[in-house]
Amino acid sequence: MRLPSFEHLEPRSLEEALGFLAKHKEQAKIIAGGTELLVCMKHGLLAPAYLVNLKAVRELDFVSEDDGGLRIGALTRLSTLSETPAVRERFPVVAQAAEMVAAPPLQAMGTVAGNLCLNTRCFYYNQSSFWRQARGACYKTGGDRCHVVKGGKRCLATYQGDIAPALIALGATLRMVSNGSEREIPLAELYTGKGRRPLALEPDEIVAEVRVPAPFDGMAGDYQKLRLRGSMDFPLAGAAAVLSRNGSGVCSRARVALTAVGTGPLVVEEATQLLEGQQVTEDLVAQAAEAAYEAARPASNVGSDASYRRKMVRVLTRRAILNAWRKE
């Protein structure tokens, strides 16, 4: 498969990059690792006139400690992220999730922001132009129907990022910049759940960095991923849990986030309510896992049966919570 033609822009600074985006808006796409974008372009899903390559914008490539928390530059490679001592030692769940993304060669290319900004995926979308022309356009490609659920009213393309649930459970925020302005949003708010525009990112905006707050006392996390092979695959379901235990053995903070079972990462609020302020027992964990099962909305569009994947949410959530609780 061939890439469509495009103009390649190579800004030397964030400012220059933002200038290009402001100028070309929807006609431009940011490229960092390229592990997803180039595949989509070969499939004819995206045909940007300009690619703004951030590889020379070194100011976005950093991991630093800040007030006990972390600042992760958008251009940080996933392999760098999982190898950074501050991440490994203080936020091991992030390293754990990053090491489960695709396979090592792709972790060495793919960036943190690229993984967070992963487009939603679907068997009827991630296909060549030839493949897709055999049926009409779907919601995600600007059409009026869903091929997954005939008569479906909205796009069900699945969000399959690995590091987002872990970072969401840690309470991470994003610093997003555009020409002349900047804002900070909770990571969970990046995801719209909408097929055509799954990310709340303006065309002239760049995700500049991820901020992870300082760890709570007695905090530990775990990420569980369902995939058919031992590497390479996107999650068919994933659950991240981050729990804090106070001095008297009570769970003082609990966050559970899911991936690959909805159109964006899902935060399981009920799990927080069930676990916080309680002694964590097997029974309570089972209830939290049941809440995750209830929250999950997988569609049969990324491999494996949706009902099977939904059941697995229960298993993965239970394992993630118990592992996080026992790690501490």
């Binding site: 068997f123 991630n126 493949w131 055999a134 092979r229 695959d233 996107f234 491999g303």
Partner: peptide, 21 residues
């Protein structure tokens, strides 16, 4: 995986040939 006569997973990513691991 099929939808009628159309193969849904004609890619090395979605057709699961075992990996070394």
């Amino acid at each position: 995986s099929w939808d009628g006569g159309q193969m849904l997973n004609a890619t090395m990513l979605e057709y699961k040939v075992p990996l070394s691991v």
